[in-house]
Design a protein around this nucleic acid. Structure first.
Lengths: 195, 195
DNA sequence: TTCCAAAACACTAACGGTTAGTGCTACGGT
DNA sequence: ACCGTAGCACTAACCGTTAGTGTTTTGGAA
């Protein structure tokens, strides 16, 4: 009834991690499409149903830490330094996220993602979820100083910046370019004073 | 070898239409998830494989005329009156498209779409395709007057406007609000003179 | 008219992701 | 020491989708 104190949680986390690691290894070795769920389960030495009790879908195995993305963005809004402009904080965070994705360590994974329509589609709808919570965070931060539509629009533009920059030849410059546009868009929403 | 002159094409189109109509009817009657591909095929009196030779997926049955959307947007760019500002033309077209989707005739279909995660996800990735061709059309219209990134960004913002407005309580006002933001974003991309 | 190549269509069977149903086992709290 | 819960396993299936194969229809050529 109370919070489980430890071992069970650790075991569960270990199983989850083992599945995720095994999946990623197999995917990178043989290609995402060439590896079946049954292969992953067998290699991780768990039952298929166990795998699906930890991950909602095959694609979710690849985007294991998607909550991180969501959390970092909302945190960039709610936890920024006092008086720091909203858009500036978001720009810094997106810049960091893009840098992380295009770094050497993550490159093979993203190459795999870009090569699979199923994964790209999954990523898009994942980002859409992130957009919702970012919009909520922005709206909460601003109180009633902006329209709901304006908040949702800005949230989506910010997420767009990530996707667009990631695909651009020079991601970091692209972030700057897009955020100039976002800044301008943000500017015209002010009902009274600037951010 | 040459272009088929008629009857064959008509028959093919008729089959396609019959499948689409049957599918939509069944989906609206019993719900999208409750109707299987085998049901649709049986009711339309075709084989499952025939159905899939006309439509790439189950979701595609619902978005039968998706090319229309794509075509109308690119046409709004390339076929607009001389000297008409790009963004204005796009705003008018998006306004029309939103009006059409929220009209009484299409309402049940969109309610069904909003109720099914699979359909929402499919729609999103469909819009992403549309974004690409819109970006291409915009880039072609502008020549080298803008960055590729700027064109792709604006294209995506315009598609976003459609999605966001469709979900807003007052869609038409939302289009206006979002397009004010797009206009501002567009403004800061000018390398020399306005559009 | 007759014949041919292509395209539409059909059928069976299967593949791969996903889930329901059922039950066992191990852990943590009492 | 005991019990409820949660993690896990197994089977069997559902559903969308595709490969393989063969049949009919159609438009054009001989």
């Amino acid at each position: 009834m109370t919070v489980p104190t430890g071992r069970r949680e650790r075991k569960k986390a270990a199983t989850r991690q083992k599945i995720a690691d095994t999946a990623l290894r197999l995917f990178l070795e043989h290609g995402y499409d060439a590896v079946g769920i049954r292969d992953v389960a067998a290699e991780a030495d768990v039952a298929v149903t166990t795998l699906f009790s930890h991950f909602a879908s095959k694609e979710a195995l690849v985007f294991e830490q998607d909550e991180d993305f969501e959390h970092r963005l909302t945190q960039a809004v709610t936890g920024r330094a006092p008086h720091e402009p909203l858009i500036l904080a978001l720009r810094r965070e997106i810049q960091a996220l893009v840098r992380h994705c295009t770094g050497d360590g993550a490159a093979p994974i993203w190459r795999m993602i870009d090569g699979s329509p199923a994964l790209r589609q999954y990523e898009e709808s994942m980002r859409l979820r992130h957009t919702e919570s970012l919009a909520t965070a922005i709206a909460a931060d601003l109180g009633l100083a902006r329209t709901t539509t304006a908040c949702r629009t800005i949230a989506r533009f910010v997420i767009d910046a990530f996707s667009l920059a990631r695909e651009a030849p020079d991601p970091e410059t692209a972030v700057d370019e897009i955020f100039q546009m976002i800044e301008a868009a943000w500017g015209v929403t002010r009902p009274s004073e600037g951010a």
